[in-house]
Computed example of a mutant assay.
Amino acid sequence: MNLVEEIKKLKKEKGALILAHLYQRPEIQEIADITGDSYFLSKKALESSSNLIVFCGVRFMAESAKILSPHKKILLPAEESRCPMADMALIDRLEDLKKEHPKAKIISYINTNLDIKAVSDVCVTSSSALKIMNNIKEEEIIFLPDRNLGEFIAEHFPNKKFILYQGFCPTHERVEPWDITELTEKHPTYEVLVHPECKKEVRDLASFIGSTSEIINYATNSPSKGFVVVTEEGVLYQMKLKNPDKEFLPLNNSMICPNMKMTNLQKLYDCLLNESNEIIIDEEMRLKAHRALENMHKLGDD
């Protein structure tokens, strides 16, 4: 059986929309209708006329799509695919922080599960965080779950007090400065593109710091012909597709998220065929989480 052809056939029969995060396997990105960052994909699900959405990513991403589109059927091909960083954010620990800092505003990275979004004042993405923070008046901020992104934001707002939850992305956290310098010593003209989920000593070596999509756009618009890419290696597929004349070097310390790679063509086919692994969320929780996403829009406007 040719899985690619069968998936295309099912997609057409069912009027489904297939979304794939930029960290997914190349063959998943290739068959998807739309690729992009998690929140971008959630918005595309909302805007689509399709009522059947297959979200190739991890669970919090499919949840975000369901929060925005409660009337649509959202499917997650790899039911077991979760985000380790999102799972580090525990509601009881957040409640303890809130008791210690009652005046603080709770800002959560979109890479969080439903229960955390539901008690957050606003969500941010790695690309919108600085703009949103500019529009927040409170001087005390609880930021979770990623301490590295939180630290990156805090560097831009020295007059605010940041209480950082000690979560992290295992894929980005394990990068060390020498992983980069061993490549830049051989390629001194190459620009270094770094995701803000990396540690400060890694960010300090960057030519550019940005979200997954921002890194791809920067590389596309830059006159440079070579780049060291310091984020999950799934982005290389789109980078090479958009820039066949440029060279993109991943780190020798392989940056692969095993959770993002759980989705494969067989799971995508089975999910679409059986309409299985549907995302079901509590409506009261959904409404609370929706407010945090709404505030992200309001505070992110120029």
Rank of each mutant, 00 (worst) to 15 (best):
K246W: 07
E278Q: 13
E173D: 15
D115M: 04
N264W: 09
E140P: 07
I28E: 00
E63M: 08
H297A: 02
P102N: 09
S126F: 08
L249C: 05
I67L: 10
V122K: 10
F55Q: 01
D270Y: 04
S213H: 03
I91L: 11
K103N: 07
N221K: 15
E100L: 09
R82P: 03
E27D: 15
W178P: 02
L193R: 11
L241D: 07
H195A: 01
G226P: 14
A86D: 09
C83G: 02
G234I: 06
P145R: 08
M255Y: 01
E139P: 15
Y218N: 10
C198P: 02
P77C: 06
Y23S: 02
A20C: 15
L22E: 06
A65M: 12
M85T: 03
S81A: 08
K267W: 12
S38M: 00
L205I: 07
Q238W: 12
T184S: 11
H156V: 05
M296I: 06
D87H: 07
K43A: 02
A65C: 04
L41Y: 12
M239T: 00
F157V: 01
D87I: 08
L149C: 03
S224D: 13
G226Y: 12
E140I: 00
N253F: 00
E13V: 01
S254C: 08
A86N: 10
T212E: 04
R82Q: 08
K98E: 11
A104F: 05
L97P: 01
